[in-house]
């Protein structure tokens, strides 16, 4: 099997191409997915290959074309609906959480919803309305799987898994990863050319370590790997776990690591309160018992909209430097 170094947007486009070639019921729709090939290039060349009925540039009508995806899935297609930025989800959340996520249950299992919402989140300096992650929001609402790939390999494998799943999947790319060059990735930019599937719901240990369990996802994995390499020189040995998927959440892998290190740090680019970081901590404690860990830390975006100024953004959003600082604080504390 041929393996090459490609970047994340190429990996997503390649996965879409292969899945659409494999299964005629797969259709892609959204703003700028066709003629432009996606604002991040993650649907490049698909319109030329599959034509406008299967690769549909839509008007700016998120509520209706998301609902159209729901209808397509109920009619037997496998739609991939792109909501360009996750922040726009507010416009179409009704169809996502009332229709897409609930219809399988409301139908008593009679209706399947093989639908993917493909969207980009994360901070790249775009301020409050174009910087959110929101995976915690989707994870809070029952009925949808939520994945956020970090490695280039997982961008391809998780997209294939999402398309082949009979469940609705929210696939959240990180804008920073989509813009990153293949050679700059610290994890998994070598990607098999053939189609493959990364199972949804299995975390991956991105770096083995013995001192602190660092749990994160998406671009947080790259930041954490950088931070872990930095503090390793100081004798701090962090284990970095890439969750890959928020729903289902792989508590097993996290708890096994935390039980060994006794220290748990969750790094989350989403908002702090009522979110992924608290959920991970509680699930680990429920599994291991309330006194199982020596240290628990959460490092997430405090509950504030993302500011425009770089100096302010850096003060709020977890990055390699802030993660390294937290790791040092934890190591020093015991």
């Amino acid at each position: 099997m041929t393996v090459r170094k490609i970047n994340a947007s190429q990996a997503v486009a390649e996965s879409l191409m292969q899945e659409m070639a494999r299964d005629e019921s797969v259709v892609l729709l959204g703003e700028d997915v066709g003629r432009s090939g996606g604002v991040f290039g993650s649907s490049r060349d698909l319109l030329e290959r599959f034509g406008p009925m299967r690769v549909r540039d839509t008007p700016i009508s998120e509520m209706s074309f998301t609902g159209m995806g729901v209808g397509m899935a109920m009619a037997g297609l496998r739609p991939v609906v792109e909501i360009m930025f996750v922040d726009f989800m507010g416009v179409c959340l009704e169809q996502i959480y009332n229709a897409m996520a609930k219809i399988p249950y409301m139908s008593g299992g009679r209706v399947k919803m093989p639908m993917v919402i493909k969207t980009a989140g994360g901070n790249i300096g775009s301020a409050a309305q174009h910087s959110q992650c929101l995976w915690g929001t989707f994870a809070h609402l029952p009925g949808m799987h939520v994945v956020a790939p970090a490695s280039v390999r997982d961008h391809k494998g998780l997209m294939a898994a999402a398309i082949r799943s009979d469940n609705p999947v929210v696939f959240i790319e990180h804008k920073g990863l989509l813009l990153k060059k293949a050679k700059d990735f610290l994890t998994g930019s070598e990607v098999p050319e053939d189609a493959f599937v990364t199972p949804i719901g299995k975390a991956e240990v991105a770096r083995k370590g013995n001192d602190i369990t660092l749990v994160t996802l998406s671009a947080g994995v790259e930041y954490a790997m950088e931070a872990a390499a930095e503090v390793a020189a100081e004798g701090i040995d962090a284990e970095v776990i890439d969750l890959r998927s928020i729903v289902p959440l792989d508590t097993e892998t996290v708890a096994a690591s935390a039980a060994r290190t006794g220290r748990l740090l969750v790094v989350d680019e989403d908002y702090l309160s009522f979110g992924l970081s608290a959920e991970v901590v509680v699930r680990v404690l429920e599994k291991l018992g309330p006194t199982a860990l020596r240290q628990i830390r959460r490092h997430a975006v405090p509950d504030v909209p993302i500011p425009a100024a770089l100096s302010l953004e850096e003060a709020l959003v977890p990055g390699p430097a802030s993660i390294a600082r937290v790791l040092r604080e934890m190591a020093a504390a015991s």
């Binding site: 509520m63 209706s64 074309f65 998301t66 609902g67 159209m68 995806g69 729901v70 209808g71 397509m72 899935a73 109920m74 009619a75 297609l77 739609p79 009704e94 169809q95 009332n98 229709a99 609930k102 219809i103 409301m106 139908s107 008593g108 009679r110 209706v111």
Partner: peptide, 25 residues
Amino acid sequence: HPFDPEHHFSATGIVGASLPVALGY
């Protein structure tokens, strides 16, 4: 919220939410 895939029938309790789904069909 009655759903009958065999007869291609569905409904929604949200006003304004039926037409998008019909558009998908």
